[in-house]
């Protein structure tokens, strides 16, 4: 029997639309191709592909300064690469950048051998970036909570996408 996705891309995009997202600044990760196909079909979203993830935080901050509402969509490995942009632009300039971060290596089933997963949450805590975890469609409203949190705190907020749309952690 085919696996059913626990977190559907449709639910994520519905949250983007609900929050008035105008631009998605992204670098694809290995599990999210469905998501990109749907985003391309959604003409309310302007997609901005980047060459390296650190650019995405600065581009999103520029979009906010120009009056738009972006979301960043990257993998945790790229989030780790983006540290100086998160520090020097999103945190220091008080920019409400919401980042959806594919949680590569995350699992509910015992220890993970993937250092990308092991470093993700400790790094966010060290950077003082609040974060939420989403795995199921029922969790999708946490994306709205992240936008509210970012606006309230004038700073970056991460949403960790624990199951990367495939349901392989069931």
């Amino acid at each position: 029997m085919a696996q059913q996705a626990l977190l559907s891309p449709e639910a994520v995009i519905e949250e983007f639309n609900k929050n008035g997202v105008t631009h998605v600044v992204y670098l694809p990760d290995s599990e999210t191709n469905w998501m990109y196909q749907l985003m391309q079909a959604d003409h309310t979203l302007d997609l901005i592909p980047v060459s390296r993830e650190g650019e995405s935080i600065a581009i999103a901050a520029g979009l906010i300064a120009g009056g738009k509402k972006p979301v960043v969509l990257i993998q945790n490995t790229g989030m780790l690469e983006s540290g100086d942009s998160i520090r020097g632009i999103a945190k220091d300039c008080q920019m409400p950048v919401v980042m959806l971060v594919g949680y590569r290596g995350w699992t509910r089933h015992g220890p993970t051998p993937d250092s990308a997963a092991r470093y993700t949450e400790p790094t966010l805590r060290a950077w003082e970036v609040p974060y939420y975890l989403i795995e199921h469609d029922e969790d999708a409203s946490r994306i709205t909570a992240a936008f509210d949190d970012a606006a309230r705190s004038s700073g970056p907020v991460a949403v960790l996408v624990g199951d990367e749309y495939h349901g392989f952690n069931r």
């Binding site: 600065a58 520029g62 120009g66 942009s85």
Partner: peptide, 13 residues
């Protein structure tokens, strides 16, 4: 990252 920030402003305005 100045050019990246500026790109965001340019696309927004």
């Amino acid at each position: 990252k100045a050019s990246s920030f500026a790109l965001g402003v340019a696309l927004a305005q």
